[in-house]
């Protein structure tokens, strides 16, 4: 990945130097060995701090919203899954495609931080990462560590659909093979839950939603969540809350409603970047919730993963006369 890092820094520096963009949104090394952090490079000097490691999990497309109403020309670095977020924002007309230079990175998968920290001292300094196809080699000041991808990647990466960005102005670094396991059913998790007894399914979600803290990290990290004001944040009587729609109260029933409302809000628009599940501080398997709709929509309406195609219209905002229907 060394080559890609160098090219990334060079391209970013070039864009900033030529003043084609004011800011390159990328990642830099985080506060421990297995962490990367969103980074906003605004100078050639800062461009040298950009990095690309198997810990760059954050989907940076969301940060475009920081600039949705100004005219700052920006560049943003995306992995394959994140790149669908660019299409999401463009389709939702939250960002003009021409205003952003998309730097695409072919991605060999993201490592599971927890699994890495079980082996590597968090205080170690990450020096170099080598993508050897089926494994990653991490070189640190405290030694070298190899991680078999099949064992150590995030589960979403083993189900990867686009490891090459679906949209980009500049592809950076060499092509790498997809980390997706061969013959993997992308919706295995959903299918597994579907086969369970309804009562089991019911208690499964009850348990998870009861734990929800309503910290809204899932919403705030989501590129499909781009309303100006959220219906869950209406303290003013007169909106939904005025009519006692959804209370601020943290309560299993209310939490349930929160997740279902959000779910419908992103139904047909969720790009499956998996960020919601990653950020959840209480391990709610949100991805399995959103992917249920994705799976059904794929089966019923042949919907592609949203964000794949810049021209698509969100599933729930369109129809075809030959759509299947169940009601009489």
């Amino acid at each position: 990945m060394k080559q890609a890092v160098e090219e990334l820094r060079r391209q970013a520096a070039g864009l900033l130097k030529e003043e084609r963009v004011k800011c390159v949104i990328g990642w830099t090394q985080g506060t421990d060995v297995a962490r990367a952090v969103p980074f906003f490079a605004t100078s050639v000097r800062q461009a040298a701090r950009l990095t690309w490691t198997p810990f760059c999990v954050n989907n940076l497309s969301k940060y475009l919203l920081n600039h949705r109403y100004d005219n700052t020309p920006l560049a943003v670095v995306v992995k394959g899954c994140d790149s669908r977020g660019i299409n999401r924002l463009v389709q939702d007309r939250q960002f003009v495609r021409e205003r952003v230079v998309v730097l695409g990175l072919p991605c060999g998968g993201m490592l599971d931080r927890e699994k890495v920290l079980r082996v590597v001292d968090p205080g170690a300094a990450l020096q170099e990462v080598e993508d050897r196809g089926s494994e990653y080699m991490l070189r640190t000041d405290k030694g070298e560590y190899g991680f078999e991808k099949r064992e150590a990647l995030l589960s979403k990466c083993l189900e990867c659909e686009h490891n090459i960005p679906v949209v980009s102005d500049l592809m950076i670094g060499p092509q790498v093979p997809s980390p997706a396991g061969s013959g993997i059913d992308r919706f295995a998790g959903v299918r597994e839950l579907e086969t369970r007894d309804p009562a089991v399914r019911s208690t499964f979600w009850d348990r998870h939603f009861a734990r929800c803290l309503r910290c809204y990290a899932c919403r705030n990290v989501c590129p499909a969540c781009n309303c100006k004001e959220c219906s869950f944040e209406q303290a003013v009587p007169g909106w939904q809350q005025g009519a006692c729609w959804l209370s601020k109260r943290n309560h299993p029933g209310q939490n349930y409603l929160f997740h279902l409302i959000r779910m419908f809000h992103v139904a047909g628009r969720c790009i499956d970047c998996g960020e919601c599940a990653r950020v959840c501080p209480v391990n709610i398997p949100l991805r399995e919730l959103y992917r249920k709709v994705m799976k059904d929509a794929e089966e019923l309406f042949a919907m592609k993963t949203p964000g794949t195609d810049p021209e698509e219209v969100p599933l729930l905002s369109t129809y075809r006369t030959d759509d299947p229907e169940e009601f009489s």
Partner: peptide, 28 residues
């Protein structure tokens, strides 16, 4: 703040954070 998402994780998980909001739930 540039990279902050504005979620409530840090405050909700903090043992010392104590801000609260008072809400009336009227049944109508």
């Amino acid at each position: 703040a540039q990279r902050c998402l504005g979620c409530g994780i840090c405050t909700f998980l903090c043992p010392t954070c104590h801000c609260f909001d008072i809400v009336d739930e009227d049944r109508g």
